[in-house]
């Protein structure tokens, strides 16, 4: 199978959907003439023209709300945030408008829109450019939150997101855009809300999502050398969460470690921990452990970053703790 970059997978997903449906358009900062801040939309202006690939001023609140309004009036916008850190100036529109519209209009106005862009740390960008808001958005009924970890999932999930009739938050990473992976030529879709077992194992379940899953997979390889067999589950979607996939795995391994880039309080890991203790308590042979970023902003100095972010070392230690090794 051919391999393409993560950014190319995203571009193919958007371009295919734009060819298929004239109501789909892409809007954001630098998406058109600059070809995308991270070159995700490279060449799309040429193919689709300036009416459908639209550069905006730096006005996230304005163009987010504009996108939502257009989605209420028959269009299917893809709104690109250069990073989700900048979505915070638009969060009023996402939470108060996009997520609430169908409900407060009594079912009259749905909002088929995708907000996509980079999330999380991306290498010494300091405190305002290195944050994870998956759990913030996932907290809100009305939204769906997708966070793929590889080009194959990115393409299949983004196509599903664009066709979805509800508002979708789609989170990527600056450091993943250049990564390559196998993506078939032929069209495919990946359903929203279905986790993927990246690696089978019998001694412990490690749940993760987004780019930080690499830490989980690396830890699993380290653990294998020591005779510990780890099953690694990629959630791919954090709203809705595929709870059944997690519980089924825990019933097999009896141990759970969650690796997540976000801060610990009210995180996706907290939610999973609640669910598993409620629904698989008798299957657990050890307390659930989680590896989140430390409860601190991300600084600039590289040694401090290493201390704060989830690491292979901390993940291996957590697994050893739950397996009493």
């Amino acid at each position: 199978m051919r391999t393409i970059q993560f950014r190319e997978a995203l571009r193919e997903a958007m371009s295919e959907e734009m060819r298929r449906d004239k109501s789909v358009y892409l809007m954001g900062e630098e998406v058109a003439e600059y070809n995308g801040a991270y070159k995700v939309s490279q060449g799309m202006l040429e193919e689709f023209g300036p009416d459908r690939i639209i550069d905006t001023p730096i006005a996230e609140l304005g163009f987010t709300g504009l996108g939502i309004g257009s989605a209420m009036n028959g269009l299917r916008p893809i709104i690109e945030f250069m990073t989700f850190n900048f979505s915070l100036v638009a969060i009023d529109q996402i939470i108060n408008s996009a997520a609430k519209m169908l409900y407060m209009s009594g079912g009259q106005y749905n909002v088929p829109i995708v907000f996509r862009g980079a999330t999380g740390n991306a290498g010494m960008l300091s405190a305002q450019h290195s944050q994870n808001f998956e759990n913030w958005y996932a907290n809100t009924p009305g939204l769906k939150v997708l966070i793929p970890s590889n080009p194959y999932d990115a393409k299949g999930l983004l196509k599903s997101a664009i066709r979805d009739d509800d508002p979708v938050i789609f989170m990527e990473s600056e450091v993943m855009y250049g990564e390559k992976g196998e993506v078939p030529e032929e069209e495919y879709l990946i359903p929203i809300g279905v986790a993927d077992v990246k690696r089978e194992g019998k001694d412990v379940t490690i749940v993760s999502f987004g780019k930080i899953i690499k830490v989980a997979l690396e830890a699993a390889r380290e653990l294998e050398k020591e005779g510990i067999s780890a099953e690694v589950i990629d959630l791919r979607t954090v709203r809705p969460i595929d709870y059944a996939a997690i519980v089924n795995s825990v019933k097999k391994t009896n141990r759970l470690v969650i690796v997540e880039e976000a801060w610990p309080l009210a995180a996706i890991s907290s939610e999973i921990t609640y669910h598993v203790q409620k629904n698989a308590f008798d299957y657990l042979d050890a307390p659930i452990q989680r590896v989140n970023s430390l409860d601190a902003p991300l600084p600039y100095a590289p040694n401090l970053i290493d201390v704060i972010l989830p690491s292979v070392k901390r993940t291996v230690e957590s697994v050893k703790s739950v397996t009493y090794r």
């Binding site: 504009l66 309004g69 257009s70 209420m72 269009l75």
Partner: peptide, 15 residues
């Protein structure tokens, strides 16, 4: 909050 939404409603009419 309705101001960008209204602008978007108009955007769709133009589109």
């Amino acid at each position: 909050g309705q101001i960008p939404l209204g602008t978007g409603l108009a955007f769709a009419e133009k589109y």
